[in-house]
Each structure stands twice: as C-alpha cells, then as structure tokens.
Simulated assay, not measured.
Amino acid sequence: MPSSESSLGLRSVDSSNRLVITFLVDNTLEWFTKLPPGFTHELSQHLQNQNPPLKTHPVTGVPVLDLNEFCCGAHGFSALIETQISGEDAHLTLFDTGPDSLSLVRNVKALQVPVDKITRVITSHWHADHTGGLLSFLELRTGSKSECIVDCHPDRPISRGMARGAQPNMIFACLPDDPTFEEIEAAGGVVEKHAEGHAVASGAVWVSGEIPRITSFEEGIPGAKRWVEEGGRGQWIDDELILDERYAVIDVAGKGLVIFSACSHAGICNVVRDAVTKFSRPIHMIIGGLHLAPADSAVRIGPTIDFLSRQLIPAPNFVLPMHCSGFYFKVELEKALGDGCVPASTGMKVEISGDRELDRRLFPSTITIV
C-alpha cells in the first residue's frame, strides 16, 4: 500500500484537496475541441466566471468576447500549479515562464492570476523559451508582500546555440541569454540553486535532479551547442545532453503521478522511467513538450508511443503533448491512446481530485516496464 509520503519527501494530494493546473504559455490555442472531465477551455472560463467581466454589446445586448483580453500563444511553456496538503495552506507554483517579456504577462492578466500569491518559480532548464518571461513576471510582482523563490539549476550556460547536422561546426543561431542570477535577484527573485532532487510546496511538488539517460533511442539533441570560456578565450562545445534539465511531479491519491516535462530533451521515456523508479507509482498524466517535432526526431516517435502505450504497465491515463511535441507525434499518439491524448493549450485549466480510499483499493504495489 503506498504511503501518503515517499522517502524522497513527496506527499500526495488526497481526498480533501485537489491539484489545479492552468496552462499560461503554450504554442497553441484551443477553444472548442472535446475535452475529458476536469478540463476547461479558456473561453468557457471567461463565459462562466465573467472574469474579467465581459462588456455588453451596445446594440445586441449580449456579452462581447474582447480578444484583446484573452490569452496569446507563443513558442514556449509555462504552467501554474496549485496544490494543497490537508490542513495546510495552498501553494501556487509556476513551472517555467515562456519565451518572452510579453506572453506570460498578457496571459496572467487575461486569466486574472494572483501573481502575488505565486511563491516559487521552477525553471525546468536553461533555454530562453522557458526562462524568457522570468524577469517580466518578477517585475509584475513588484510591491508584493511575499517573496518569490526562483528554483533553478546552478549550471547556467553563457549561451546556447544550434548547429546543422551536416555542418556540425557551423552555428546557425543561438537563443537569447537566460536571465543571470544577479538579474533575477535585482528583479525581486530569491535564487535557490538545486542540482539534486527536492520537494517543495509543503512536499506536494517534487523537482528532479539530473535525469538518468538509459533509453537507447533517446540520445540527446543533435547539433545542440554551448558557449564556454576559459583562460580569456571562448568556444562552442557539444551540449547534446542538456544535463541541467529537470522535471516536476505531483502524486494524486487514487490517480497516480502527474509529470511536468517542459521540453524532454532527456527523452520522455527517460523521464517516466526515472519517476516510476523513484516513486513506484502509476502515471496518471504526462504534461509538456516532448521534443518530437524536429525532423531528426521522427525516428523516435514510434518507439516513444510504444513505450507509453504498451511497455509501461499500466499506461498513463492521459498524455498532454504540448509545446515542442509536434503535429505528427500528436496524430500517432491519438491513434494509440484515443481520448487519452488530450489537445491541451494556452489558457486551459485542469482540476484533478485525490481519493485516498480509491488509492488503497485499486492501486498496484509495483509498476511494470516491459
């Protein structure tokens, strides 16, 4: 029987509480597609909650959907995670901040997110499409009475770039620089550097350390480069493994693990293997970018789907392929999982309730990977 707290400090969300996820930045917008129970489109939230209040059309008298007050899509990822352990205060944790100074700020305003109550930001890794909105978010909190911890990996690169496969030494572009530790603190953030796994939010969220690379077909990102300096000289070196990448996980009683893997440079199979090994719990939901959109990742689509749908027993209840997952992967995943492949997007909300009694009655003591 699984305990309400693991040896690693992760505590499960139980029957008196719930996990609420709001997607603040993603590449796509989706207002109309059929969703499973517990999922709510942004459009429905505006209409049902009138938050912000909708204006009335002066002629027809019906509510006006002012698209200037709705979310926008952007190439990046950010999710707001609300957790609560029985008898304790709720925690709002931001997982990544999107790619720029505009999209996250616009979207938190559109969804009326109480930014002053977000007390921790987890950065999944040092890539600008995941950290680009960090400083603007912290500036949005200016004047807040609560501090905001920025939970990040200590190994921040000077710069990251990409080379073409046929020309491994030709760097065709680099990403904007990630915020420095000094810039984060100047904007009001409290830097916490973590290279090892650790629990946060009263133990409801566990942030991984380095992800073990054991899956044969998940060999990193071809052409990924990193700028290093030594002795007054700089150069590009190979950085295909992107070892600073981390995932986050929440355990919901009666459901299982909810995994946030913002870009899956390590490979989503490696991420899932590590989570299952550490917590011996079934996977309820996998969320985020699975990095199968690039053409050179196409060969991994079939083996990845086979792992998630057949080799992992029981299979995940839901997979939400977002950000860099790619159209072709989504199509093939839907064939394998049906309604378990959810078209999640910017502005969508997910509510997951815990059930301790169901956990005791139904869950296996071990998870199998064949």
Results as ranks from 00 to 15, higher is better:
residue 31 W to P: 09
residue 286 I to W: 05
residue 218 E to T: 05
residue 42 E to N: 09
residue 76 G to A: 01
residue 143 G to S: 07
residue 193 K to F: 01
residue 203 G to V: 01
residue 255 K to A: 06
residue 200 V to P: 00
residue 196 E to W: 11
residue 274 D to L: 04
residue 11 R to E: 07
residue 240 E to F: 08
residue 197 G to A: 12
residue 28 T to Y: 15
residue 108 V to Y: 15
residue 205 V to T: 10
residue 202 S to D: 14
residue 201 A to W: 07
residue 140 L to K: 13
residue 190 V to N: 12
residue 233 R to Q: 13
residue 292 L to R: 03
residue 125 H to F: 09
residue 48 Q to D: 06
residue 318 F to E: 03
residue 27 N to Q: 12
residue 178 D to E: 14
residue 93 T to K: 12
residue 84 Q to Y: 12
residue 51 N to Y: 00
residue 48 Q to A: 08
residue 149 I to T: 13
residue 149 I to D: 06
residue 48 Q to E: 13
residue 306 D to S: 11
residue 4 S to Y: 11
residue 128 A to Y: 10
residue 133 G to N: 10
residue 359 D to T: 08
residue 164 R to M: 14
residue 63 P to I: 04
residue 172 F to S: 15
residue 262 A to N: 09
residue 297 S to R: 15
residue 187 A to Q: 05
residue 215 T to M: 12
residue 364 P to V: 09
residue 171 I to P: 00
residue 88 E to L: 12
residue 257 L to F: 05
residue 41 H to G: 09
residue 230 E to I: 01
residue 31 W to N: 15
residue 255 K to R: 15
residue 146 S to D: 11
residue 303 P to S: 10
residue 152 C to H: 04
residue 32 F to V: 09
residue 330 K to W: 03
residue 257 L to G: 00
residue 251 D to E: 14
residue 22 T to L: 04
residue 292 L to V: 04
residue 199 A to K: 03
residue 192 E to T: 15
residue 52 P to D: 05
residue 240 E to H: 06
residue 162 M to Q: 14
residue 145 K to C: 11
residue 63 P to H: 01
residue 4 S to V: 13
